[in-house]
Computed example of a mutant assay.
Amino acid sequence: MEGKLVGVHKVTVKLADGRLETYYYAWRGKGAPRMKSKPGTKAFTQEYVRLTRDRQAAAVTGTIGSLIDDFRKTPGYQSLSPSTRRDYERQFGAIRLEFETFSVKHIEARGSRKVFLDWRDTMSEAPRSADMHIALLSRLFAWAKDKEIILRNPLERVERLHDGTRRDIIWTDAQINKVLTEAAPHIRSVAMIALWTMQRQADILTMPTLAFDGQRVMIKQGKTGARVRVVAAPDILPVLRKAKEIQQQRVLVNSFGQNWTSSGFRSSWRKEMARLGVKGVTFHDLRGTAITFAYANLDRSHDEKIKLISEISGHTQDDAESIIRKHYLAGQEVVDAIGRGTKKE
C-alpha cells in the first residue's frame, strides 16, 4: 500500500545507539508532518489522506478529481451531517489517490466499469469498506450524469461484496420485555423512544426537548436531512413531558442527567445488555422491530403502510417491505411484548 501513496517521503536515520530507524512524512520538505501509523496498513493510508486533504491543489479540469471538487460544493453535500461528510472525505481521499487524473470522457468509455470494480476488489479483505467506496463513486457519477457532464454512470446496479445487512434480525418478545421492565431507567427510555419513533440512534440521542410540542415530535434525520413529524405514542409521553417540565436541553439524558455522547451511550448500552443477558441483537435492530410493530397495527392497505413507515423511519420502501415480508408473522408477538413491558412500569 505504501507504494500507492504518491508523495510519501521516507527517511532513514542512524540513532545515537547505532540502530537505523525509518521515518515517514506525508510529503517532502520543511514542515511536512511525520506519519505515526505502520506503513502498508489501512491506518497508514487514512492518516496520509487526513494530513494531505487540505494541502491538495486544485484538480485538473475534466477529471474525476475536478468532479469531486465540484460535487463537494453542492448544497446537497454541504447539508450532510458533519459525521457523514467526514466519512465521505476519507473515502474521497482514497478515490483521489487512485483516480485523481482519470479523464471524465473515459468514465463513459466501454470497459470503465471493470476498471472501477477491479479497484474495489483490491479492498475485498474489507468488503464493507470496499462497498462504501464504490457506492460513493457511483453517487458521484450519478450526480455528474444528472448534470449532463457524463452520459452514463458505469457503476449503476453494482452487486455488493458485503452481505452484512441486519434487516433479517428483530428482537424477540422476551428480549423486548426484558429491556422494558428490567433495564436501568435511562436505558429503558432510549429503547422506548426508539421503538415508538423508528429513528436512528444518533437522531434519538440528540433530539431536543423543544422538538416535542405536546402531541408530536419533530425530528431532523441526520443521515438524510429529512424532517419528519411523529405522533407521540402514549407510552413515551411520560418521558417527553418530564423532559419538558424540568427543562432539559434534550429529551434523553444519561444517568447523571447529562446529554449522551455517542461513545458513552454505546458503552452504557453494551454493559446493560450484558447485565440483562440480551444477546444476538443490537440497538439498530430495534428499527426493524418497530417497523414490524407498526405494520401490524396500521389500519391501511399494504402499499399505504409501507409508504407511511418509510417516510417516518428513513428506510427506503423496498427495505421496509423486505423487513415486513420476513417478519410480519412475528409482528403481533412484538406488539404484545411492547404492550406488556410498558404496562408493568
Rank of each mutant, 00 (worst) to 15 (best):
225 G>D: 04
226 A>P: 05
259 N>I: 04
222 G>M: 05
234 P>C: 01
270 R>M: 13
232 A>D: 03
268 S>H: 15
228 V>R: 03
273 M>D: 03
238 P>S: 05
256 F>I: 08
261 T>F: 07
266 R>A: 10
230 V>N: 03
256 F>S: 13
225 G>Y: 08
223 K>M: 08
227 R>E: 15
246 I>W: 00
231 V>N: 15
265 F>N: 08
265 F>C: 05
248 Q>R: 13
262 S>I: 01
233 A>D: 07
248 Q>P: 03
241 R>W: 10
234 P>S: 07
226 A>D: 13
237 L>M: 10
257 G>M: 10
232 A>H: 06
278 V>L: 03
227 R>Y: 11
251 V>A: 05
239 V>L: 03
275 R>K: 15
229 R>M: 07
257 G>S: 12
258 Q>F: 02
236 I>H: 02
273 M>H: 02
232 A>Y: 09
232 A>M: 07
265 F>E: 11
248 Q>H: 11
222 G>V: 00
271 K>H: 14
260 W>D: 03
267 S>W: 14
245 E>D: 14
245 E>A: 14
234 P>Y: 06
253 V>D: 14
241 R>A: 13
227 R>T: 08
230 V>A: 06
256 F>D: 13
257 G>Q: 11
264 G>L: 04
248 Q>G: 05
241 R>K: 11
230 V>E: 07
239 V>A: 01
223 K>T: 05
254 N>T: 01
257 G>T: 11
240 L>Q: 02
273 M>E: 10
242 K>S: 06
269 W>D: 11
274 A>M: 08
257 G>R: 12
260 W>Q: 03
249 Q>H: 12
245 E>K: 12
239 V>F: 02
232 A>W: 04
230 V>C: 09
273 M>P: 05
240 L>T: 01
276 L>A: 04
231 V>C: 12
261 T>P: 07
272 E>W: 13
248 Q>W: 10
264 G>N: 07
255 S>N: 09
258 Q>L: 07
230 V>P: 09
233 A>C: 05
227 R>F: 09
268 S>T: 15
243 A>I: 02
226 A>Y: 09
270 R>E: 14
262 S>D: 15
269 W>H: 12
239 V>R: 06
263 S>P: 00
256 F>E: 14
237 L>F: 03
231 V>M: 15
229 R>V: 01
245 E>N: 12
275 R>E: 15
232 A>L: 06
227 R>Q: 11
240 L>C: 03
247 Q>Y: 14
251 V>H: 06
277 G>Y: 09
260 W>T: 00
273 M>T: 07
257 G>Y: 13
261 T>Y: 12
242 K>T: 10
226 A>I: 04
259 N>H: 11
233 A>Q: 07
225 G>L: 05
264 G>R: 04
232 A>F: 02
265 F>L: 06
224 T>Q: 09
254 N>R: 06
263 S>V: 00
236 I>V: 05
277 G>L: 08
268 S>K: 15
243 A>H: 04
268 S>R: 15
230 V>W: 11
269 W>R: 10
237 L>G: 04
244 K>N: 00
254 N>L: 02
245 E>Q: 14
223 K>S: 14
255 S>Q: 11
223 K>F: 14
273 M>I: 03
256 F>M: 14
229 R>A: 07
248 Q>Y: 09
241 R>G: 05
247 Q>C: 12
267 S>E: 14
249 Q>I: 10
